[in-house]
Protein backbone atom coordinates (compact mmCIF):
# COMPACT_ATOMS: atom_id res chain seq x y z
CA UNK A 1 0.00 0.00 0.00
CA UNK A 2 1.24 3.46 -0.84
CA UNK A 3 -0.05 6.54 0.95
CA UNK A 4 0.76 9.95 -0.40
CA UNK A 5 0.08 13.00 1.74
CA UNK A 6 0.30 16.63 0.61
CA UNK A 7 3.00 15.93 -1.93
CA UNK A 8 4.72 19.05 -3.26
CA UNK A 9 7.39 19.20 -5.91
CA UNK A 10 8.96 22.33 -7.32
CA UNK A 11 11.49 22.30 -10.10
CA UNK A 12 14.16 24.87 -9.34
CA UNK A 13 14.61 27.90 -11.54
CA UNK A 14 17.11 27.32 -14.30
CA UNK A 15 20.17 29.46 -13.91
CA UNK A 16 22.05 31.23 -16.65
CA UNK A 17 21.31 34.46 -18.42
CA UNK A 18 17.64 33.72 -19.05
CA UNK A 19 16.39 33.15 -15.53
CA UNK A 20 13.21 31.12 -15.47
CA UNK A 21 10.68 31.04 -12.70
CA UNK A 22 10.63 27.95 -10.49
CA UNK A 23 7.89 25.57 -11.64
CA UNK A 24 5.63 24.02 -9.06
CA UNK A 25 4.71 20.74 -10.76
CA UNK A 26 2.83 19.07 -7.93
CA UNK A 27 0.87 21.15 -5.42
CA UNK A 28 -0.24 19.20 -2.39
CA UNK A 29 -1.48 15.92 -3.84
CA UNK A 30 -2.80 13.19 -1.51
CA UNK A 31 -4.05 9.72 -2.38
CA UNK A 32 -3.93 6.09 -1.31
CA UNK A 33 -3.00 3.19 -3.57
CA UNK A 34 -4.20 0.02 -1.81
CA UNK A 35 -2.61 -3.41 -2.35
CA UNK A 36 -3.75 -4.84 -5.68
CA UNK A 37 -5.75 -1.66 -6.19
CA UNK A 38 -5.83 0.81 -9.01
CA UNK A 39 -5.60 4.57 -9.02
CA UNK A 40 -5.65 6.53 -12.26
CA UNK A 41 -4.34 10.03 -12.70
CA UNK A 42 -5.82 11.72 -15.70
CA UNK A 43 -4.95 15.10 -17.11
CA UNK A 44 -3.31 16.89 -20.01
CA UNK A 45 0.39 16.85 -20.77
CA UNK A 46 2.29 19.09 -18.38
CA UNK A 47 -0.24 18.79 -15.55
CA UNK A 48 2.21 17.11 -13.18
CA UNK A 49 0.91 13.56 -13.42
CA UNK A 50 4.21 12.20 -14.73
CA UNK A 51 6.09 13.83 -11.86
CA UNK A 52 3.92 12.00 -9.34
CA UNK A 53 4.80 8.67 -10.97
CA UNK A 54 8.49 9.50 -10.99
CA UNK A 55 8.43 10.46 -7.32
CA UNK A 56 6.73 7.21 -6.40
CA UNK A 57 9.33 5.17 -8.26
CA UNK A 58 12.15 7.11 -6.62
CA UNK A 59 13.41 8.73 -9.82
CA UNK A 60 12.59 12.17 -8.51
CA UNK A 61 12.76 13.73 -5.04
CA UNK A 62 10.02 15.81 -3.49
CA UNK A 63 10.03 19.03 -1.47
CA UNK A 64 7.41 18.41 1.16
CA UNK A 65 4.66 16.03 2.10
CA UNK A 66 5.01 12.36 2.75
CA UNK A 67 5.11 9.15 0.76
CA UNK A 68 4.55 6.04 2.86
CA UNK A 69 5.30 2.59 1.47
CA UNK A 70 3.44 0.12 3.71
CA UNK A 71 3.51 2.81 6.35
CA UNK A 72 7.25 3.52 6.02
CA UNK A 73 8.63 6.86 4.93
CA UNK A 74 11.61 5.95 2.79
CA UNK A 75 13.40 9.27 3.08
CA UNK A 76 14.38 8.31 6.62
CA UNK A 77 15.86 4.95 5.61
CA UNK A 78 19.50 4.32 4.71
CA UNK A 79 19.96 4.35 0.95
CA UNK A 80 20.49 0.59 0.56
CA UNK A 81 17.24 -0.19 2.30
CA UNK A 82 15.45 2.52 0.39
CA UNK A 83 16.60 1.07 -2.91
CA UNK A 84 15.39 -2.35 -1.77
CA UNK A 85 11.90 -0.98 -1.08
CA UNK A 86 11.75 1.09 -4.23
CA UNK A 87 12.51 -1.95 -6.38
CA UNK A 88 9.03 -3.14 -5.55
CA UNK A 89 7.60 -0.11 -7.36
CA UNK A 90 8.34 -0.39 -11.07
CA UNK A 91 7.79 2.26 -13.71
CA UNK A 92 6.39 1.36 -17.13
CA UNK A 93 7.37 4.23 -19.36
CA UNK A 94 5.50 5.76 -22.24
CA UNK A 95 8.01 4.98 -24.96
CA UNK A 96 8.91 1.30 -24.91
CA UNK A 97 11.63 1.86 -27.48
CA UNK A 98 13.50 4.33 -25.28
CA UNK A 99 12.96 2.08 -22.27
CA UNK A 100 14.95 -0.77 -23.81
CA UNK A 101 18.67 -0.60 -24.44
CA UNK A 102 19.06 -0.75 -28.23
CA UNK A 103 22.45 -2.42 -28.03
CA UNK A 104 21.38 -5.31 -25.82
CA UNK A 105 19.29 -8.35 -26.66
CA UNK A 106 16.10 -9.08 -24.75
CA UNK A 107 17.90 -12.00 -23.08
CA UNK A 108 20.60 -9.67 -21.70
CA UNK A 109 18.01 -7.07 -20.72
CA UNK A 110 16.15 -9.62 -18.60
CA UNK A 111 19.21 -11.39 -17.22
CA UNK A 112 20.72 -8.31 -15.58
CA UNK A 113 17.97 -7.80 -12.98
CA UNK A 114 17.53 -11.57 -12.68
CA UNK A 115 21.21 -11.98 -11.79
CA UNK A 116 20.69 -9.60 -8.87
CA UNK A 117 17.56 -11.45 -7.88
CA UNK A 118 19.36 -14.82 -8.09
CA UNK A 119 22.11 -13.52 -5.84
CA UNK A 120 19.59 -12.30 -3.33
CA UNK A 121 17.64 -15.53 -3.28
CA UNK A 122 20.66 -17.84 -3.71
CA UNK A 123 19.31 -19.24 -6.93
CA UNK A 124 21.19 -20.85 -9.80
CA UNK A 125 21.81 -19.74 -13.37
CA UNK A 126 19.24 -22.26 -14.51
CA UNK A 127 16.68 -20.59 -12.27
CA UNK A 128 17.44 -17.27 -13.96
CA UNK A 129 16.94 -18.77 -17.39
CA UNK A 130 13.66 -20.39 -16.52
CA UNK A 131 12.47 -17.24 -14.79
CA UNK A 132 13.27 -15.16 -17.90
CA UNK A 133 11.11 -17.51 -19.93
CA UNK A 134 8.43 -17.43 -17.28
CA UNK A 135 8.05 -13.64 -17.24
CA UNK A 136 8.00 -13.49 -21.03
CA UNK A 137 5.32 -16.15 -21.18
CA UNK A 138 3.40 -14.24 -18.52
CA UNK A 139 3.24 -11.13 -20.72
CA UNK A 140 2.11 -13.20 -23.68
CA UNK A 141 5.35 -13.48 -25.65
CA UNK A 142 7.05 -16.57 -27.02
CA UNK A 143 10.36 -16.70 -25.10
CA UNK A 144 12.27 -18.66 -27.72
CA UNK A 145 11.39 -16.13 -30.41
CA UNK A 146 11.91 -13.01 -28.35
CA UNK A 147 14.98 -13.76 -26.20
CA UNK A 148 17.68 -13.50 -28.91
CA UNK A 149 16.19 -10.39 -30.48
CA UNK A 150 17.19 -6.75 -30.21
CA UNK A 151 14.48 -4.20 -29.37
CA UNK A 152 14.35 -2.79 -32.91
CA UNK A 153 13.27 -6.20 -34.22
CA UNK A 154 10.03 -6.13 -32.18
CA UNK A 155 6.79 -4.26 -32.72
CA UNK A 156 5.69 -1.50 -30.35
CA UNK A 157 3.26 -3.77 -28.54
CA UNK A 158 5.87 -6.50 -28.14
CA UNK A 159 8.40 -3.98 -26.80
CA UNK A 160 5.98 -2.74 -24.18
CA UNK A 161 5.34 -6.34 -23.16
CA UNK A 162 9.09 -6.86 -22.78
CA UNK A 163 9.27 -3.74 -20.62
CA UNK A 164 6.52 -5.15 -18.40
CA UNK A 165 8.28 -8.54 -18.30
CA UNK A 166 11.48 -6.82 -17.17
CA UNK A 167 9.57 -5.07 -14.39
CA UNK A 168 8.13 -8.42 -13.32
CA UNK A 169 11.61 -9.93 -12.83
CA UNK A 170 11.86 -8.16 -9.47
CA UNK A 171 8.38 -9.32 -8.39
CA UNK A 172 6.99 -5.83 -7.88
CA UNK A 173 4.03 -4.89 -5.67
CA UNK A 174 3.18 -1.80 -7.69
CA UNK A 175 3.42 -0.90 -11.36
CA UNK A 176 3.37 2.77 -12.27
CA UNK A 177 2.18 2.87 -15.87
CA UNK A 178 2.94 6.31 -17.28
CA UNK A 179 1.03 6.67 -20.57
CA UNK A 180 2.00 3.05 -21.09
CA UNK A 181 -0.15 2.55 -24.18
CA UNK A 182 -0.20 5.96 -25.81
CA UNK A 183 2.64 5.19 -28.23
CA UNK A 184 1.27 1.82 -29.23
CA UNK A 185 -1.03 1.08 -32.15
CA UNK A 186 -4.62 1.42 -30.99
CA UNK A 187 -5.36 -2.11 -32.15
CA UNK A 188 -2.73 -3.46 -29.74
CA UNK A 189 -3.52 -1.19 -26.78
CA UNK A 190 -6.29 -3.32 -25.43
CA UNK A 191 -3.91 -6.29 -25.31
CA UNK A 192 -1.52 -4.38 -23.04
CA UNK A 193 -4.37 -3.03 -20.93
CA UNK A 194 -5.85 -6.48 -20.41
CA UNK A 195 -2.36 -7.72 -19.47
CA UNK A 196 -2.16 -5.03 -16.77
CA UNK A 197 -5.62 -5.96 -15.59
CA UNK A 198 -4.59 -9.61 -15.40
CA UNK A 199 -1.48 -8.74 -13.38
CA UNK A 200 -3.76 -6.94 -10.96
CA UNK A 201 -6.34 -9.64 -10.68
CA UNK A 202 -4.15 -12.75 -10.72
CA UNK A 203 -0.90 -11.52 -9.21
CA UNK A 204 -2.13 -8.83 -6.86
CA UNK A 205 0.01 -6.08 -8.36
CA UNK A 206 -1.37 -2.62 -7.66
CA UNK A 207 -1.41 -0.22 -10.60
CA UNK A 208 -0.98 3.52 -10.69
CA UNK A 209 -2.23 4.40 -14.14
CA UNK A 210 -1.15 7.76 -15.47
CA UNK A 211 -2.89 8.76 -18.67
CA UNK A 212 -4.84 11.27 -20.67
CA UNK A 213 -7.08 8.49 -21.95
CA UNK A 214 -9.98 8.02 -19.57
CA UNK A 215 -11.29 4.95 -21.35
CA UNK A 216 -7.96 3.16 -20.87
CA UNK A 217 -7.95 4.11 -17.18
CA UNK A 218 -11.44 2.74 -16.83
CA UNK A 219 -10.44 -0.56 -18.39
CA UNK A 220 -7.60 -1.19 -15.94
CA UNK A 221 -9.31 0.22 -12.87
CA UNK A 222 -13.07 0.11 -13.17
CA UNK A 223 -13.34 -0.64 -9.44
CA UNK A 224 -10.49 1.72 -8.55
CA UNK A 225 -10.32 5.47 -8.18
CA UNK A 226 -9.67 8.27 -10.63
CA UNK A 227 -7.93 11.53 -9.76
CA UNK A 228 -8.33 14.33 -12.27
CA UNK A 229 -5.31 16.57 -12.07
CA UNK A 230 -5.03 20.09 -13.41
CA UNK A 231 -1.85 22.15 -13.11
CA UNK A 232 -0.50 20.08 -10.24
CA UNK A 233 -3.71 19.94 -8.22
CA UNK A 234 -6.26 17.18 -7.95
CA UNK A 235 -9.47 18.95 -8.94
CA UNK A 236 -11.77 15.95 -8.66
CA UNK A 237 -11.53 12.38 -7.49
CA UNK A 238 -13.87 9.49 -7.05
CA UNK A 239 -14.66 5.88 -7.84
CA UNK A 240 -13.93 5.37 -11.55
CA UNK A 241 -17.36 4.73 -13.01
CA UNK A 242 -19.03 7.18 -10.63
CA UNK A 243 -16.72 9.98 -11.73
CA UNK A 244 -17.08 9.09 -15.41
CA UNK A 245 -20.88 9.03 -15.25
CA UNK A 246 -21.37 12.17 -13.18
CA UNK A 247 -18.32 14.45 -13.13
CA UNK A 248 -18.92 17.72 -11.28
CA UNK A 249 -15.78 19.72 -12.07
CA UNK A 250 -15.86 21.48 -15.45
CA UNK A 251 -12.32 20.34 -16.19
CA UNK A 252 -13.21 16.68 -15.66
CA UNK A 253 -16.19 17.31 -17.87
CA UNK A 254 -13.97 18.75 -20.60
CA UNK A 255 -11.58 15.79 -20.39
CA UNK A 256 -14.40 13.28 -20.52
CA UNK A 257 -16.06 15.14 -23.39
CA UNK A 258 -12.86 14.76 -25.34
CA UNK A 259 -13.11 10.96 -25.48
CA UNK A 260 -13.99 10.20 -29.11
CA UNK A 261 -17.58 9.22 -29.69
CA UNK A 262 -18.07 6.17 -31.89
CA UNK A 263 -20.86 7.65 -33.96
CA UNK A 264 -23.28 4.95 -34.94
CA UNK A 265 -22.50 2.92 -31.86
CA UNK A 266 -22.68 5.70 -29.29
CA UNK A 267 -24.51 8.98 -28.87
CA UNK A 268 -22.59 11.97 -27.50
CA UNK A 269 -23.53 12.99 -23.96
CA UNK A 270 -26.04 15.85 -23.82
CA UNK A 271 -23.68 18.21 -21.94
CA UNK A 272 -20.52 17.48 -23.96
CA UNK A 273 -18.26 20.48 -24.59
CA UNK A 274 -14.73 20.94 -25.79
CA UNK A 275 -12.69 24.11 -25.22
CA UNK A 276 -11.03 24.96 -28.54
CA UNK A 277 -8.45 27.61 -27.72
CA UNK A 278 -4.93 27.24 -26.38
CA UNK A 279 -4.31 28.89 -23.04
CA UNK A 280 -1.45 30.20 -20.98
CA UNK A 281 -0.29 27.79 -18.31
CA UNK A 282 -0.94 30.19 -15.44
CA UNK A 283 -3.10 33.28 -15.66
CA UNK A 284 -3.09 34.02 -11.97
CA UNK A 285 -6.73 33.36 -11.18
CA UNK A 286 -7.70 31.83 -7.85
CA UNK A 287 -9.23 28.78 -9.47
CA UNK A 288 -6.61 27.84 -12.03
CA UNK A 289 -9.14 26.48 -14.45
CA UNK A 290 -11.27 29.62 -14.47
CA UNK A 291 -9.78 31.11 -17.69
CA UNK A 292 -10.80 28.00 -19.64
CA UNK A 293 -14.04 27.31 -17.79
CA UNK A 294 -17.31 28.03 -19.55
CA UNK A 295 -19.13 28.19 -16.22
CA UNK A 296 -16.67 30.47 -14.41
CA UNK A 297 -18.00 33.39 -12.37
CA UNK A 298 -16.34 36.27 -10.58
CA UNK A 299 -15.88 34.26 -7.40
CA UNK A 300 -13.71 31.75 -9.29
CA UNK A 301 -11.16 34.45 -10.10
CA UNK A 302 -10.87 35.77 -6.58
CA UNK A 303 -11.51 32.94 -4.15
CA UNK A 304 -9.62 29.67 -4.29
CA UNK A 305 -11.94 26.65 -4.11
CA UNK A 306 -11.13 24.01 -1.50
CA UNK A 307 -11.50 20.28 -1.77
CA UNK A 308 -14.96 19.28 -0.55
CA UNK A 309 -16.98 16.06 -0.75
CA UNK A 310 -19.81 15.63 -3.24
CA UNK A 311 -22.44 13.19 -2.05
CA UNK A 312 -21.23 10.41 0.16
CA UNK A 313 -19.43 7.97 -2.10
CA UNK A 314 -15.94 9.32 -1.49
CA UNK A 315 -16.39 11.72 -4.40
CA UNK A 316 -14.45 14.95 -3.82
CA UNK A 317 -13.90 18.04 -5.94
CA UNK A 318 -12.46 21.52 -5.96
CA UNK A 319 -15.10 23.73 -7.56
CA UNK A 320 -17.34 26.56 -6.31
CA UNK A 321 -20.22 25.54 -8.53
CA UNK A 322 -20.29 21.76 -8.78
CA UNK A 323 -22.98 20.43 -11.11
CA UNK A 324 -23.08 16.83 -12.25
CA UNK A 325 -23.27 16.77 -16.03
CA UNK A 326 -23.61 13.94 -18.50
CA UNK A 327 -20.81 14.43 -20.96
CA UNK A 328 -19.67 10.94 -21.89
CA UNK A 329 -21.15 9.04 -24.79
CA UNK A 330 -23.95 6.58 -24.28
CA UNK A 331 -24.14 3.26 -26.09
CA UNK A 332 -26.81 2.91 -28.76
CA UNK A 333 -28.77 -0.18 -29.54
CA UNK A 334 -27.53 -1.41 -32.89
CA UNK A 335 -29.33 -4.07 -34.82
CA UNK A 336 -27.01 -5.42 -37.43
Amino acid sequence: MIEVKHLVKTYPARGGILKQKPVQAVKGVSFVLPDAGAVAFIGESGCGKTTIGRILTGLESYDSGEVLYDGVNLTRLPSAERREKLRKVQLIQQDPYAALNPSRTIAKTLMAPLALEAKRQQKSKAWMASRAREVLALVGLNPEVVLPKYPHMLSGGQRQRVVIARALTVEPDVLVADEAVSMIDVSLRLGILSLLLELRNKHGIAILFITHDVAAARYVGQDGRVCVIYQGEVVEEGVTDDLIQSPVHPYSQALLSAVPVLRGLEAPGPDRYIPLGEFQQDEGTACRFAPRCRYAEERCRTEKPRTVPYGNGGHRHRCHFPVARRVVAEPLEVNS
Binding site: R83, L91, A98, L116
Partner: peptide, 12 residues
Protein backbone atom coordinates in the same frame (compact mmCIF):
# COMPACT_ATOMS: atom_id res chain seq x y z
CA UNK B 1 17.18 7.79 -21.54
CA UNK B 2 14.40 5.53 -20.40
CA UNK B 3 16.45 2.36 -20.24
CA UNK B 4 18.97 3.89 -17.83
CA UNK B 5 16.17 5.04 -15.54
CA UNK B 6 14.69 1.56 -15.78
CA UNK B 7 18.03 0.00 -14.85
CA UNK B 8 18.24 2.27 -11.82
CA UNK B 9 14.69 1.45 -10.87
CA UNK B 10 15.54 -2.26 -11.01
CA UNK B 11 18.34 -1.62 -8.54
CA UNK B 12 21.17 -2.46 -10.92
Amino acid sequence: RGFIEAARGLGL
